[in-house]
């Protein structure tokens, strides 16, 4: 409970008393890909930045949009839309220009760092036993190996990414 209070304070999000009272599983950031909502555990997130110029790497998968220069580090950026079979009209361009209202979330898993391109940030989320479902609940979604569970938010069901499996999937792309 104490942790939940601290998290609530740090995030500054509108987390109600009910959530604070429940057990907190994890805290995440929900974002839009087109009109769909997805969520990622904040422990995997390294930065959230306004979309920078992305430079396509030739002879690589479409799902790899290209690379960005983040403080002198060259990082790959993926179209999570294409990974999840959602059409993406920015993919395939040699250079994707910067866009202030779009975002790149950089993700760190052990030694690997990569970015995913998102359309908008929705809000901070706190997963508790009340609003978080996993296991069989995921079965109705395709490519469900890429998700850990589902966050229930009003009428929305927000899929939470399984970063380990996502990275494994990205490494396997040709």
């Amino acid at each position: 409970m104490e942790i939940a209070k601290i998290l609530n304070k740090r995030v500054g999000g509108d987390i109600d008393e009910q959530q604070v009272k429940s057990n907190v599983y994890f805290q995440g950031i929900a974002f839009y890909l087109g009109k769909s909502l997805f969520c990622m555990d904040i422990m995997s997130i390294r930065d959230i930045i306004a979309a920078k110029k992305i430079y396509k790497v030739p002879n690589t998968t479409d799902k790899l949009l290209g690379t960005i220069n983040l403080r002198g580090e060259i990082l790959p950026v993926y179209s999570l839309k294409l990974v999840l079979s959602i059409p993406d009209n920015i993919a395939g361009k040699n250079i994707i220009e910067e866009e202030e209202d779009k975002f790149i979330i950089t993700v760190k898993k052990d030694r690997d760092i990569f970015g995913i391109f998102v359309d908008a940030i929705y809000k901070n989320m706190v997963a508790t036993e009340e609003n978080y479902r996993e296991g069989n609940y995921l079965q109705k979604w395709s490519k469900n190996y890429l998700f850990n569970g589902v966050l229930l938010d009003e009428d929305n069901e927000i899929l939470v990414l399984n970063i380990e499996n996502l990275l494994r999937h990205l490494i396997s792309l040709k």
Partner: peptide, 12 residues
């Protein structure tokens, strides 16, 4: 600047 060749596999 090194590239993560596990993720970026472009021949050449």
């Amino acid at each position: 600047k090194p590239l993560n060749t596990k993720l970026i596999k472009s021949p050449g």
